[in-house]
Design a protein around this nucleic acid. Structure first.
Length: 365
RNA sequence: CCAGAGGUAGCUCAAUGGUAGAGCAGGAGACUGUAAAUCUCUUGGUUAGGGGUUCAAGUCCCUUCCUCUGGA
């Protein structure tokens, strides 16, 4: 039985590790991580696991034991659906058919990677993740109604196929799921559907209805969470939550800034993941407690550590943060490492941001 | 001392005698189910000093200074 206190935030470990940040550095704070199926498939970690287990005659090594992750830490595997948006729709590196998503990547131009809803489940099962996501067709939100409707309805069909495959994997894995607004306990892998419908509240409502009619353990807020101006799309987020039966467990996929998480939680979402704390750390944006940095949002300030004003600043990044970076290093040193593009700087910055995010989300409970 | 090659932005270097530029560094932004350790924007110049030729000189000529490479 695993239990998550809600709300919770999972840093993204897309390529089987949190970018620039060893798991053990944040182990005590980590409640879960998000790995991505497509990249897992492409770098062949499922093949590696198979090889290790075959050579060792049923060692039963899975991703968790290989990466030495705590038993109670939740592994959420993404389906590869977001890459349909970022690679296929945005960068035209493939196409989507009814069968699945076909990725044609520059590193292997002659090879087509077909990711079906079933294969995505197979990979997620091989990884041994605790929360699995159905392959979906996300859009940016500015497409016409016809395109949005088709993507939404295909997402529903794919979700049904994914559930069928998931059932094959977990047929004998009976277990209970207990959820309240403040906690989620489960003793079997969970399956998450993804609500689409773009920026159209009616289509969001329809998507939620179609998916909940099939029945899933939890539901993701799919698509692109921002509006045309780059602000968090609160109206559509509300349409998403309202499209589901009361008490549904909701997952804000790729949400977001601390402000976005706070508002999403207020609306009713409880599970979050985002690349912001790690990516922005590498790019020099460090999250700090309100009042301890440059004014940025309603719930947080920023220290853009590369800025000249921190060149000789001997104070910690955030005097109210209890992370190892704030307890041991100065802004001046962090700035120096950042400006020199020193990988250790990226690691320390990521450690701070992830730690700070975990504290922030905990403060919403 | 002699010969050759040089001296242009903080650095490395471009620029037929015709509006002095780039990369990096420096500065400022952005980042939302990771196509990245990324992207965008941007400040810097008496072209080593002085003189000359020319409508016009970083560019040609003279001179001084400095650097590098050979030679004695």
């Amino acid at each position: 039985m695993k239990t998550l206190s809600l709300p919770t935030f999972f840093p993204d470990a897309t390529y089987a590790s949190i970018h620039s940040l060893p798991f053990h550095d944040v182990a005590e704070k980590l409640e879960g991580i998000v790995v991505t199926t497509l990249h897992m498939q492409l770098i062949g970690i499922t093949e590696l696991l198979l090889k290790i287990n075959n050579e060792g005659s049923n060692l039963d090594i899975n991703y968790r034991s290989l990466a030495n992750l705590r038993d109670d830490m939740v592994i959420l595997s993404d389906s590869g659906g977001f890459q349909v948006l970022s690679l296929i729709h945005k960068h035209k590196l493939g196409k989507v058919t009814e069968e699945g998503a076909i990725f044609k990547l520059p590193d292997s131009p002659k090879k087509k990677h077909l990711l079906t809803p079933e294969l995505s489940q197979d990979i997620q099962h091989a990884i041994g993740s605790d929360i699995r996501v159905v392959l979906d067709v996300p859009l940016m939100g500015n497409e016409d109604r016809k395109t949005t409707t088709e993507a939404m309805e295909r997402t529903t069909r794919w979700a049904a196929r994914a559930k069928e495959q998931y059932n094959k994997h977990t047929a004998n894995n009976k277990g209970e799921v207990v959820s309240t607004p403040h906690s989620l306990s489960f003793s079997r892998p969970l399956l998450c559907a993804v609500v689409q419908g773009g920026n159209d509240p009616e289509l969001r409502k329809e998507s939620g209805a179609q998916l909940s009619a099939i029945g899933f353990d939890l539901y993701g807020f799919g698509g692109w969470p921002l509006d045309e101006k780059g602000f968090f799309n609160t109206k559509i987020a509300e349409a998403f939550v309202n499209s589901l039966p009361a008490g549904s467990i909701t997952y804000g996929m790729g949400v977001g800034t601390p402000d976005d998480i706070a508002i999403s939680h207020k609306i009713g979402m409880t599970i979050f993941d985002c690349v912001i704390p790690t990516r922005n750390a590498r790019h020099g944006s460090l999250f700090v407690t309100k009042g301890n940095g440059e004014k940025a949002g309603e719930t947080f300030d920023l220290v853009r550590i590369g800025a000249q004003r921190y060149e000789t600043d001997l104070s910690p990044i955030d005097k109210d943060c209890d992370c190892p970076v704030c307890k041991n290093y100065t802004r001046a040193y962090l700035r120096f490492l950042q400006k020199k593009k020193n990988p250790v700087g990226y690691t320390l910055a990521s450690l701070h941001n992830v730690w700070w995010y975990m504290n922030f989300v905990k403060s919403l409970r």
